[in-house]
Design a binder for these strands. Structure first.
Lengths: 155, 155
DNA sequence: GCTGCAATACTCGGATACCCGGTGTCCGAGTCTAACTGG
DNA sequence: CCAGTTAGACTCGGACACCGGGTATCCGAGTATTGCAGC
């Protein structure tokens, strides 16, 4: 999985706290990551419709909908794409004893298993929203940290 | 996911039908794939203890245990490794408002979600064995195909 | 004092290099078979 | 006819190139602000 997924998720949690557009440079500085590369991830999220960008002065990124309406899977698919990790190459139709094509209407057993596992993975990611991540994080961090983060974003 | 996983799984199903060692070249010819590259996958499975290799004439690969005792996950982990796809880089400990390290004993919310999804994926793959794959395949293929495969392996 | 305009600075978006891990290949080490020779 | 030896061929195992996708970066397009000039 692409490393940018982690950055994108952290950005979403931070954007959910902010009430004003946050520029990519600020997001990168907050997380101490490469601004140029983070811009690419934000761009991907913008294409996927998760965030909305406003240009010009005082511009930046905002979530397009409530954090409770954005799942972790949405972010993962925005960055890494929606294609499953496993792609069946129909090995059974090759070789000296190849199965005839008309016998291969249904996906082969291996593809079925992989597809099932992929669905389980996606279901697991779909069950958690950005709001859940924020709530979990709030339970761990020190008191007052959220206010300090808001103040830093405003500066 | 590595493309060799599919080849490895097909080889396991074929090896479960064979009652004698099958050389890598024959496995590659049967599936019409690169013999050199397939050798690498078989080598990985040998290291993982899924197959046993015998050298010399009439040598080849054999499953080390019954097909019902080998899960799809075993094969996937043998080829792709056991490391999870997501690796937390502890972004929360970086930047101007970094969370102090002593506050980070527990994994962050993002890591927890990813770990949970990874576990769901692995559980799904662990629930299916090579024997299940063979049984499913037998239900679809034409009658007599298994016997023909055995005969081809023996030739 | 108010309004319209233009210059400015700031922001995003896509196009462009770089590099590492998977992909693909090869040759040498090891071993089982089998034929041959000697008793 | 049998046993030991040796030659042979076959097999695996690890080391070596190649290439595409993720990683990282930069500069141009676009826009809201803001300062200024004219009315």
């Amino acid at each position: 999985m692409s490393g940018g997924v982690e950055w994108a998720l952290h950005c979403c949690t931070l954007l959910s706290r902010a009430s004003q557009p946050v520029p990519a440079v600020k997001l990168a500085e907050y997380h101490d990551v490469s601004p140029s590369y983070l811009a690419k991830q934000l761009q991907l999220m913008s294409r996927a419709g998760l965030v909305r960008s406003t240009q010009g002065n005082a511009g930046g990124y905002v979530l397009t909908r409530d954090a409770a309406a954005i799942t972790v899977l949405d972010v993962v698919e925005a960055i890494d794409g929606v294609l499953p990790a496993f792609r069946c190459t129909e090995v059974r139709q090759r070789g000296p004893l190849a199965t005839p094509a008309e016998q291969c209407a249904d996906p082969c057993a291996i593809a079925k298993v992989m597809d099932s596992a992929d669905r389980a993975w996606r279901d697991s990611l779909r069950a958690v929203t950005i709001a859940d991540l924020v709530a979990d994080a709030d339970r761990q961090i020190l008191p007052g940290a959220v206010e300090r983060a808001r103040a830093w974003l405003a500066s």
